[in-house]
Design a protein around this nucleic acid. Structure first.
Lengths: 246, 246
DNA sequence: GAGTTTTGATGTCAGCACACATCGGTGTCA
DNA sequence: TGACACCGATGTGTGCTGACATCAAAACTC
């Protein structure tokens, strides 16, 4: 070994192969040999095999005896795996991935708000209102970094307050779309006053247990968010996977 | 080796550990040693290590030097991974898992119907209508196995027709809730006439590109489905994960 | 108590035996 | 002579093992 490694060889191998497959450099159907990967990555068989096993569990490759390690088509990948999402966001698939995430979020958050209104513990309802108020202040004063941070916490709290662990798990990916919107300069100098009010509406509705209102207000936020982000993925073709192919 | 193996040792090891962790037999914080696992499973280090690596990528365990392999708390698991879902459905978590899936589905399908109305290829729209009509026939004549099959295909087609690969990936899990409803005797002798009509409404709305109507009709189906399934998870406590803990 | 050494676990390597799908050669039959 | 079935060689993933590296907790020294 020449280099002292910051990350483990295993981690690097997974990352190396994952980015190349998801990024499209290794196309679907491409076959690799374990031995070849050893040379390419300068690691031993154990490292390659453990990495391939992980990629296999993500649906990125399959191993076939006497043939090698074959790259699977994109529709076999697990689109909910954090690694796959990260790799897609880092490569060509960024636009399509952001659209998928935004659509997922626009579907989930209103229902999460509904559930939070029905089920969230009081402490979360209180915190939600505090954050919404702080968002209004930060938004009006144009403190955008603080606004972004509060925005993330707000939506994370709605998802978490739903009491649905699948919803709560989307927090990381919501964070990605929110920061993405800011990074790509898609946020105005000041957030719209209406948007600030909608966040307060959500907080109040959840606070008072009004599921219908919470959903409605959340949907308005989602519509606005989608409209803001749309330029990011414009022109990206949609993919329709035949249902029989799992 | 004594036994000829039907499934690979790797597969068996992943399954063995996964079911025990998700099933709660190995509680959060429990520490195992790789060597101990070798003895327990009667497999070699490579098998154990590769299995542990896969479980690590699912968020079920972490490996710590000088300590061992530690089971992670449930909120660290990837709730979207097919393996995790399957293990939860097979164990104590079945009720909570079904609720999560049903809620996710009730959030996603109306939006998927909306998107399908806007984007689905014509062939899918046509097939959707055919299936909805066939569902009506099967429903009225009380051919429930055929109805279930058509129902699955219908909802799979809506999800797939959205052109969102994350939605399309939920097909398998939707199948689980639909078959679960039938298996648990939660379906009436004949599906309600209204439900049959709602499916036709969705198909027609998507066929004619009416996104709003598609969403509305889909939401009605979802409300009904949730109501049907609710007994399955009654009394299951909700879990609220603090937002700061990832 | 702070710094150092020891210890024990995972991480990594390399070589081997085995199972098995594929391919090509051989034999048989028409 | 040609078509077809059989069969063994080959290559590659699967699994096992012994050895060493690495690193952090724990024990020890001062």
């Amino acid at each position: 070994m020449l280099t002292t490694m910051s990350t483990s060889l295993h981690h690097r191998a997974v990352e190396h192969l994952g980015t190349r497959i998801v990024g499209g450099k290794l196309p679907s159907g491409h076959v690799m040999l374990a031995e070849h990967l050893e040379d390419e990555l300068n690691v031993s068989r154990s490292v390659v095999r453990e990495a391939v096993r992980v990629l296999q569990s993500l649906g990125l490759v399959e191993t076939i005896k006497r043939v090698g390690i074959r790259v699977l088509p994109a529709h076999r990948w697990n689109p909910f795996d954090p690694l796959v999402i990260r790799w897609r966001l880092a490569g060509d698939g960024r636009g399509a991935q952001l659209r998928s995430l935004a659509e997922l979020r626009s579907a989930v958050e209103p229902v999460a708000a509904e559930l939070a209104a029905a089920n969230a513990p009081d402490s979360m309802r209180r915190e939600l209102l505090e954050i919404a108020l702080a968002m209004r202040d930060a938004g009006r004063s144009g403190d955008m970094p603080r606004f972004l941070d509060l925005d993330i916490r707000f939506h994370a709290l709605v998802l978490s307050g739903s009491g649905n662990e699948m919803f709560a798990n989307l927090i990381g990916q919501v964070t990605e779309t929110l920061t993405g919107r800011t990074v790509h300069g898609l946020m105005p100098e000041h957030p719209k006053e209406a948007a600030l009010q909608w966040h307060l509406d959500v907080a109040h509705a959840i606070g008072s247990g009004d599921a219908g209102k919470a959903r409605e207000a959340s949907m308005r936020i989602m519509k606005e968010t989608i409209a803001d982000l749309e330029p990011t993925w414009q022109g990206q073709p949609r993919v329709f996977v035949p249902v029989d192919r799992r």
